[in-house]
């Protein structure tokens, strides 16, 4: 019961947050000089007036805001300014699944990889495998995503050249082979971060009294590892999954651009450059709502995984 109450309260807070995001974006967007109807060839005042009337920009700003918020409440993001006969809802519906696919894969790779590498380095603490992996981890955390993406692509070109057959596609989307490298590149930074987290958490757990007790009781080593060490060590990793999803979503913009992947991130970036008001609003509010929701889900999940945590 308390869980439901907690979830409901967080959800209501989330809605306020999203409303705040929408309002802030709306104001910031209109404060920027220029507007989506600007084009390199100037138009006559009559053509300009026709355009403004068509897109509702002839209304005063507070009217535009009220119209926007009321449409938003009905889940209608309006029509794109640049893609003149596409609805923003269609853009989100068609392209978010692509970004989500890439994101899910990257999160899974990062999560699983982080746990495995973290456990391994803890086990080999201060020995060669630990040092080697931790060196790579520092590298992966400090090198920016666009560099890793470019290197990943170069590696594919090199691989195809050396083998003489097109093993992996350089860019594009639509098959398993298109996903592998972009997802790896996207998940790499998070995986490195999780490896570090998992390593220290694992070291802490191995040194605890209950592990020593379990050993003393003669529980098989395998069972100690899986049931006592790993399960407790993995908890902090789940805590950071929420922020990690945010990181991977935003990192996706770069990966989508480099690998020519038709995800939503590209629309987000283009819309800002072209001042496409409706797409900026639609994607920002959508991403905002999505992230707020994911953070709530992760918090709830944490309560389920660790019963000691009280959801207040």
């Amino acid at each position: 019961m308390t869980l439901w109450r907690y979830a409901l309260r967080r959800l209501l807070q989330g809605i306020v947050t999203v409303w705040f995001i929408a309002t802030a974006t709306f104001l910031a967007m209109h404060a920027v000089p220029g507007d989506p109807l600007m084009s390199d060839k100037a138009v006559t005042p009559e053509i300009r007036a026709n355009l403004e009337a068509k897109y509702g920009l002839d209304q005063p700003l507070h009217r535009q805001y009220l119209i926007y918020i009321s449409n938003l409440a009905r889940g209608d993001f309006g029509i794109s300014f640049t893609q003149k006969n596409r609805e923003v809802n269609d853009i989100i519906r068609e392209h978010f699944p692509v970004s989500a696919t890439l994101g899910i894969l990257a999160i899974v790779i990062a999560g699983m990889g982080g746990v495995v590498w973290g456990a391994l380095t803890a086990l080999y603490r201060n020995r060669l495998p630990d040092t080697a992996i931790m060196f790579l981890v520092i590298l992966a955390i400090s090198v920016p995503g666009f560099v890793i993406a470019a290197l990943g692509q170069l590696a594919i070109v090199g691989l195809n050249r050396v083998t003489g057959i097109p093993l992996l596609p350089v860019a594009g989307w639509g098959s398993v082979s298109h996903m592998l490298i972009p997802a790896l590149v996207l998940g790499l930074g998070t995986m490195a971060y999780l490896t570090r987290l998992m390593r220290s958490s694992m070291l802490e757990v191995i040194a605890t009294d209950y592990i020593r007790t379990a050993r003393a009781k003669g529980i098989p080593a395998t069972r100690i590892f899986t049931h006592h060490a790993l399960r407790n060590a993995v908890l902090p990793v789940i805590t950071v999954l929420g922020p990690a999803i945010a990181g991977i979503t935003t990192g996706g913009f770069v990966v989508e651009l480099v690998f020519a992947i038709p995800g939503l991130g590209r629309y987000f970036v283009q819309a800002v450059q072209q001042l496409d008001y409706t797409v900026i609003m639609g994607t920002t509010v959508f991403y905002g709502a999505f992230l707020v929701f994911m953070v709530i889900v992760v918090d709830l999940l944490y309560g389920i995984v660790d019963p000691r945590v009280r959801l207040e």
Partner: peptide
């Protein structure tokens, strides 16, 4: 424990 863990 190390060995078992490595296997795991």
């Amino acid at each position: 424990l190390d060995r078992a863990a490595l296997k795991q």
